[in-house]
Design a protein around this nucleic acid. Sequence first.
DNA 1: CCCTTAACGCACTTCCTGTTGCGTTATGCC
DNA 2: GGCATAACGCAACAGGAAGTGCGTTAAGGG
Lengths: 221, 221
Amino acid sequence: MSAGQRPGGRSARVRAAVLTATRALLVDGYTGLTVERIAQAAGVNKTSVYRRWTDLEGVLGDLLSEYASEVVPIPDTGDLDTDLEELALLIRRGMAGEPGELLTALAAAVPHNPRAAQIVRGFFAERFGLAEAVVNHAVARGELPQDTDARAAIEVLGAPFFLRLLVVDEPIDEEFARRTAAAVAAALRSGVFSRAREPHPVTGADAEHSAVGDASCSPAS
Amino acid sequence: MSAGQRPGGRSARVRAAVLTATRALLVDGYTGLTVERIAQAAGVNKTSVYRRWTDLEGVLGDLLSEYASEVVPIPDTGDLDTDLEELALLIRRGMAGEPGELLTALAAAVPHNPRAAQIVRGFFAERFGLAEAVVNHAVARGELPQDTDARAAIEVLGAPFFLRLLVVDEPIDEEFARRTAAAVAAALRSGVFSRAREPHPVTGADAEHSAVGDASCSPAS
DNA sequence: CCCTTAACGCACTTCCTGTTGCGTTATGCC
DNA sequence: GGCATAACGCAACAGGAAGTGCGTTAAGGG
């Protein structure tokens, strides 16, 4: 197998040095992060960085893909609430340090950098895809309707974290994570995420709100 | 009253020209948007732009504050589900065109521009604050517990929209808006957003909003 | 109508990112 | 060990956006 061209010591060393330096620079903020600075911190010439990654976002993307390749244990405790809560806490921890800064930096580049957009979207697609298992397990256990839209539920679960990370300046604490998870669990149980959305089949606790609209209110004119 | 220094025709004209030009440039994407380009499109020298706004983000912020000053009618139909759904559709429409591009551009600048961060956060704080009324009205009607955290609920409602706007590349359609609104409604009813959160009273087969029935039927608004 | 001066336009400089050409190093293979 | 060449370092360059000094225009009050 041809591993690139010449992956011998030096190339690997440069790559490692650059990624390590980038990580180090990321911890104290993305502001002013530039290829030149990274190269300097890595003890490498910026030309090498441009040659290998072509872009600042390329470096960040490479770094992100390292995190993406880390196997995260998707919770599977046999209980939907517990699984969602642990998942939320997992997301929270994942955003706490470097990955958070990394995502912030890449997300900022999305509007004017197609490659950055592709990288971030790919990351999300993969992570969300994995997380769907939590919902699908509950479906398999019969806790949720068969036609539950797992993807949509996970999106609602993850979104508040990113709002806080990217825009709002409020802490992403455990309380926040637990509450968000509980909200999604409640929504799931209500049947809102059924693809053919009809009032809850769950627990036979009929009582729809859809009844409100039709019969009782006959619009006069 | 001293309106600045000399608000006579020219200043106002330049200001209007710049903002209009910026709007026009925003519609076909934020990419490559720069002070120089705006000035050129406005038939104005870039020096004037820098003097007045000091920054590209300054111009965008000014534009955003115009949108912020537009009065949006917070839904108040007497029914939580309807209110939330209309609110979601309002958010959707608000993100459809220029404001969406505007928020995207400013959000991208947040990580490396404190002023942009302040502007965006201020915008969100105001808008979210207004939207809380929808929840608070429901509390006042007795549909929701007294200690419901309106802010948290609105955050969960709005977040998915921004995730799609800023990161993910999926359409923000009406179906999406309705589903998100329904999810938040379900979560609210489950008591998840009570500040003193107690283990689910969920699926309160009884706890029906039978009270809703009459209120929503207020004839001929 | 004139005078003061706020606000603008123009040309220029500065700064920083990203690129290129070329000589140098050291890897991988014989 | 020696050779071909991938990969790197260095320095100079290009391009574009931010910022500045100064002369010019026109608002607004007398």
